[in-house]
Design a binder for these strands. Structure first.
Lengths: 115, 115
DNA sequence: CCCCAATATTATTATGTACGCATATATAAA
DNA sequence: TTTATATATGCGTACATAATAATATTGGGG
């Protein structure tokens, strides 16, 4: 992004990563995993979601290297798969929060002018 | 993401940001803008794309606060809108590159074992 | 081997989104 | 005001993706 030209393939990989992060439900999964590794069943309970949906999203996250997993008996234990993730989400969350605050401030000053 | 629970609204905002970043063409736009601010026409030329498409993607990026713009005569000059972006893309690109290398290494060792 | 529990996969349907084309808006110049 | 240039918007089509329900698979215990 900075200065180097990325190949189409790399660009597609990076885009996929962002795209896979761009789903509220998957963000909730990652948020849950950030508090500790969990089995599919634990995620289903924690997120109050249905199991096939959780499995499918986990599969996508796994594909993109955003989570990793290990077997444990008949269960699969999933965990955050990329140390970059915490930093990344922190960045975006902070920035989004700042932006929300800016919007709020604008809204308030607009209300102060108008009525 | 780290420890705090995000509201549904914030989660949706963050997800939208990631989703908007998750399109190769929009990444190319940002990559181009990272080398300096540009008008729509300059982007069209630089990316060899058609104008309405560029305008539409710029509109989305603007919505999400990922680019900003100013008027200059009859033109609009767009630029990177969030200082976080460079860091962010750097992170993801590096991580994606590492992952690609891992995949490559796995593939090679698999080939070494198999035949 | 059979059964049960945990997880994954498939099929279906509904919704979202990108692209290209045509067209609308805006601003500057004649 | 008319014309030309730059940018934005609307529309239709093709394709991607999410949610749900039903079903398959995998591994452990009896």
């Amino acid at each position: 992004m900075t200065h180097l030209a990325l190949s189409d393939r790399t660009l597609e990989l990076v885009a996929r990563r962002f795209r896979y992060l761009g789903e509220p439900f998957r963000l909730r999964i990652l948020q849950s995993l950030s508090r500790g590794e969990k089995t599919v069943g634990q995620l289903v309970e924690d997120l109050d979601a249905n199991q096939p949906n959780v499995s499918k999203h986990l599969q996508m996250l796994l594909e993109a290297g955003l989570v990793s997993r290990r077997k444990e008996g008949t269960s699969r234990v999933y965990s955050m798969g990329d140390p970059m993730l915490l930093t990344l989400c922190d960045l975006v969350c902070r920035s989004a929060r700042e932006r929300t605050e800016e919007d709020l401030a604008e809204l308030q000053s607009a209300q102060a002018r108008k009525p």
